[in-house]
Simulated assay, not measured.
Amino acid sequence: MKFDLDTAWKDTTGLMSRNLGLLAVIAGVFIFLPNAGIAIALPEMGNLEDAQASGNFDAMMAAINDLYASYWWVFLILALIQGAGLLAMLALVRRRANPTVGEALSTGAKSVPSYVGAQLLQTALIAIAVTLLVGLGAVTGLRALAVLGAVIAFVVVCYIVTKLSLAAPVIAIEGELNPIKALQRSWSLTAGNSLRLFFFYLLLIVAFIVLSTVISLVLGLIFALAGEQAALLGEAVISGLLSAAMIVVTACVLAAAHTQFNRLKAAPLPPTNN
């Protein structure tokens, strides 16, 4: 049986509508406030936004490098907080025992080390694959092979990320705290449906980019009309809101996909004609 994109989206929207109030509370505390706070507190964020607005790629990369070099520890803490929030949302929407918000937060907090371990292992796997594929093409000195290696590396990265994308719900919903087993479980669940799952993610990412761009432009213009300080505050608020919305949707998408894959694995095989 195949992964059904329409069913996954209906399950996603159902989870959001049934749990929107509680998800909004968690997203507000773990996603919106930290992101908006960082945008307001770090003056270098303004330099990054100016570089992005200029359209100069080198200036933008320099601003990003300077920002992370100076405040890497802030972004590390932010990533841990957001990871705990994501795991808490997953536990909230799909734990069979219907946990309270407090129980979901407790699950999220205790699952963070496993989630971080899984992310580090995934990053290491991607780094090895990219290094081998891009490095082999670069060693030959042939531009065509280097470009081909980069293209293949991009495809491999997309494949790995898709195959391992269900590690978070495996950890938060199934309670698997061994990061290696969580990754193995994700790989097994997505077997035979990786391409369908990738296109489901891709469609959602494209839709979110378009929608968030429009929202940022419209709200950014409204705040800009109120003055420079209002514009800075508005950018922080917009960034926090979009980040919170993204994590809420991500949690529901992952939970819906995880549930459908569990149903597919549990479904009996169709009879065969001998």
Rank of each mutant, 00 (worst) to 15 (best):
G83V: 07
W73C: 15
P99H: 07
A27W: 00
R18H: 12
L189T: 00
K181M: 02
P34G: 10
C158L: 13
G234H: 07
I31A: 13
A224W: 08
F3S: 08
I160F: 12
A168G: 04
K181T: 06
L125M: 05
W187G: 00
G102F: 07
T13A: 13
L145K: 04
W187Q: 02
V237K: 05
M246W: 10
M60I: 15
L33N: 01
M61Y: 08
F75Y: 06
D66P: 09
L211H: 06
A91K: 03
A146F: 04
A138M: 09
P169F: 05
L142Q: 10
A129S: 10
P34E: 11
L183A: 00
N65H: 11
N262A: 12
W72I: 14
M61L: 08
L136M: 14
T190N: 02
A257S: 09
G14M: 10
G102T: 13
C158R: 09
I26S: 00
L211P: 00
E228H: 10
W73V: 15
A267G: 03
G14E: 08
I64F: 14
W187H: 02
T12M: 07
Q122V: 03
E44P: 04
A84M: 08
I209Q: 09
A245H: 13
A88G: 05
R94I: 07
